[in-house]
Design a protein around this nucleic acid. Structure first.
Lengths: 217, 217
DNA sequence: AATCAATAAAGAAATTTTTCTTTAATAAAA
DNA sequence: TTTTATTAAAGAAAAATTTCTTTATTGATT
């Protein structure tokens, strides 16, 4: 923990975005038994510049060895610690529809430090069911379970028009961060962290590149 | 179409990322019957700078009126055209697990111009089933269906370790763009467009902000 | 009719992020 | 042992993106 004290200077968001991929790659190498990996190798895998990799890793305590590269195990250990993946944080998920269920089924979240403690919905047919061992409650229930279970994150996977209502509930619950999967933008107090994850942005990027190609033809 | 000929200068990716949210917001206003919207309003909704909004919209043919703002209908029309959401593109999805099913159930993709024509898997229990009216085939079947159905996009929702194999198949199918939902990075010929969409990047950003707060306390 | 206030638009400046360049280290090869 | 090639690291430069500033327009107010 002490080692972070000098790193109050924020790490660039693009760097944070790339790090989980470095981690996933290193974990794969570790399984294969590879002991060292160079920035060139990582860069080749990621299709980016090697200096980008060294810059990114320089924000952590990882140091490489000239002519050898980085120790794979160090990347795995330091990066999962650095990204907050090695401490389990608890979350509530609201909206146990198709996307909600997919998240509940995703073991990757568990692996990366997020435990979904309970799910909530208003649909009577899903309430009471268990999805991948996580129980689905009616949204009116267990309002104050959040503090009791030390739940710090709320995941919103309801239809866009209900996003704000759910967000308000979560804030009232005392949640610290909201992961919003709807295209709607929510208004919350300043100290609440909001991360919007909208699939359609990615779709737009693909279409843009496709059409750019068409235009150039 | 002619109006795009001068816009070969690439639109910044961050701009493209924000545009679907502008569109979603404008669609909401249109339903409510609002005729004009100012950059300030949009910016307030998005929690960004108003000049950012005007810059972003200036990449399109949309023009605003001083002291009035932008015509909501124009934003909806021009932006969906601009983002490629008004023309239907066809896709194949490989990996009909939980995330795959979630995408198949998502009507938003249809709304934003993507039609998933068929799904593929290797799990005998899902093959032959229909998920939200999309049939699931064994991956060995219909290799050349892609060209027949004019499928230009492949969606990868298999486990990370199989991503490359599936990508190779898709390239062989003659697909132009790949939407990769696994944390694995795939290698494809240069002319194939790849869009990686990994949830864990978003998780990392949330954790980073949470821990930054803790560090500052 | 004159003034005021809100706005889009264009360009400049500042900031952030990526890429390039240089240096030093060191394992491998000669 | 000496040379060579590969690499990390640090800093500089370049590029991309965001924010700030100015200007012009125009609806609303006085």
């Amino acid at each position: 923990m002490v080692q972070y004290s000098k790193k109050i200077q924020a790490v660039p968001e693009p760097t944070i975005r790339r790090m989980p991929s470095y981690l996933a790659f290193a974990e794969g190498l570790l399984r294969k038994g590879q002991q060292f990996v160079s920035s060139t190798q990582i860069a080749n895998y990621m299709n980016i510049d090697p200096t980008q990799v060294t810059k990114d890793l320089s924000y952590t305590t990882i140091v490489g060895k000239t002519r050898v590269g980085y120790e794979v195990k160090a990347i795995v250990d330091v990066l999962s610690e650095f990204l907050g993946f090695s401490v389990m944080d608890n979350a509530f998920l609201v909206g146990a529809g198709s996307l909600g269920s997919a998240l509940l089924h995703d073991s990757g979240l568990n692996h990366f430090g997020l435990k979904i403690e309970a799910a909530f919905d208003i649909n009577p047919s899903t309430i009471g069911r268990k999805i991948n061992d996580v129980e689905v409650f009616h949204i009116d229930q267990f309002r104050d379970l959040a503090q009791e279970l030390n739940v710090i994150m709320g995941i919103i996977t309801v239809p866009a028009e209900n996003a704000q209502t759910v967000a308000d509930l979560m804030v009232a619950w005392g949640i610290k961060a909201i992961w919003n999967f709807t295209p709607a933008r929510i208004k919350v107090p300043e100290d609440i962290i909001v991360q919007n994850t909208t699939l359609y942005s990615n779709l737009a990027i693909i279409f843009n590149k496709l059409h750019q190609e068409r235009r150039e033809e």
